[in-house]
Computed example of a mutant assay.
Amino acid sequence: MKKIGMVLDINVSEKKGVVKKPVEKGIFKEDYGLEGDAHAGKWHRQVSLLGIESYRKMKDLGIKGLSHGDFAENITTEGIILHELPVGTRLRIGETIQEVTQIGKQCHTGCAISQQVGKCIMPKEGIFTKVVKGGVVKQGDIIEVLE
């Protein structure tokens, strides 16, 4: 049975360590990342993803007023527990194919996200990908885990 999820939002920022703002669609370039985003480049963490399921955990902890992009993720998803995917997993997201390169990360000390939100879930539950095949990704696109 295929794992299928959905893109809730595409988020970008021009600087690292800040909250990202939703955009209508993202143009993802092969071996580069999301056009116009500070984290894009020729490295292993070109795109960051975080599930709405992680947002719900934060809300359950009493954190109010969260918006997609608050944890600096490029793609807010629903329907797949992202941090359970092994490194090397390939995902078809909209027109793109992306490969999981890292689960979680070390958080910047006192980054804008933890200052604003009080705690960041990205270090444990966010995932990072590199773009294997470029294309457009927009809200409502399907995410498919490729076998």
Rank of each mutant, 00 (worst) to 15 (best):
residue 53 E to A: 00
residue 53 E to Q: 02
residue 54 S to Q: 11
residue 55 Y to R: 00
residue 55 Y to C: 00
residue 55 Y to W: 04
residue 57 K to Q: 09
residue 58 M to L: 15
residue 60 D to V: 07
residue 60 D to F: 10
residue 60 D to S: 13
residue 60 D to Q: 14
residue 61 L to Q: 08
residue 62 G to A: 07
residue 62 G to F: 07
residue 62 G to R: 05
residue 65 G to N: 14
residue 65 G to S: 07
residue 66 L to M: 15
residue 66 L to I: 11
residue 68 H to S: 02
residue 69 G to P: 04
residue 69 G to K: 01
residue 70 D to H: 03
residue 71 F to V: 00
residue 72 A to N: 04
residue 74 N to W: 01
residue 74 N to K: 07
residue 77 T to Y: 02
residue 77 T to E: 08
residue 78 E to L: 15
residue 80 I to P: 02
residue 84 E to W: 04
residue 85 L to E: 02
residue 86 P to H: 04
residue 87 V to M: 04
residue 87 V to K: 13
residue 88 G to N: 05
residue 89 T to P: 07
residue 90 R to Y: 13
residue 91 L to S: 02
residue 91 L to W: 09
residue 91 L to T: 08
residue 92 R to E: 15
residue 92 R to P: 06
residue 92 R to F: 10
residue 92 R to A: 14
residue 93 I to C: 10
residue 94 G to K: 07
residue 94 G to Q: 09
residue 94 G to R: 08
residue 95 E to N: 11
residue 95 E to A: 12
residue 96 T to R: 08
residue 96 T to N: 11
residue 96 T to S: 09
residue 96 T to E: 11
residue 97 I to D: 09
residue 97 I to W: 08
residue 97 I to P: 05
residue 98 Q to L: 13
residue 98 Q to I: 14
residue 99 E to V: 13
residue 99 E to G: 06
residue 101 T to R: 10
residue 101 T to C: 09
residue 101 T to E: 04
residue 102 Q to L: 13
residue 103 I to M: 07
residue 104 G to P: 11
residue 104 G to Q: 12
residue 105 K to T: 08
residue 105 K to F: 11
residue 106 Q to T: 15
residue 108 H to K: 12
residue 108 H to R: 13
residue 109 T to Y: 14
residue 109 T to F: 15
residue 110 G to K: 15
residue 112 A to K: 09
residue 112 A to R: 09
residue 114 S to P: 00
residue 115 Q to C: 03
residue 115 Q to F: 10
residue 116 Q to D: 05
residue 116 Q to I: 09
residue 117 V to G: 01
residue 118 G to H: 06
residue 118 G to L: 02
residue 118 G to I: 05
residue 120 C to M: 12
residue 120 C to R: 01
residue 120 C to H: 06
residue 122 M to T: 02
residue 123 P to C: 11
residue 125 E to F: 08
residue 125 E to T: 12
residue 126 G to K: 05
residue 127 I to R: 05
residue 129 T to R: 03
residue 130 K to V: 14
residue 132 V to E: 10
residue 133 K to Y: 08
residue 133 K to M: 07
residue 134 G to P: 02
residue 135 G to E: 06
residue 136 V to E: 15
residue 137 V to R: 01
residue 138 K to I: 03
residue 140 G to Q: 10
residue 142 I to Y: 12
residue 142 I to T: 14
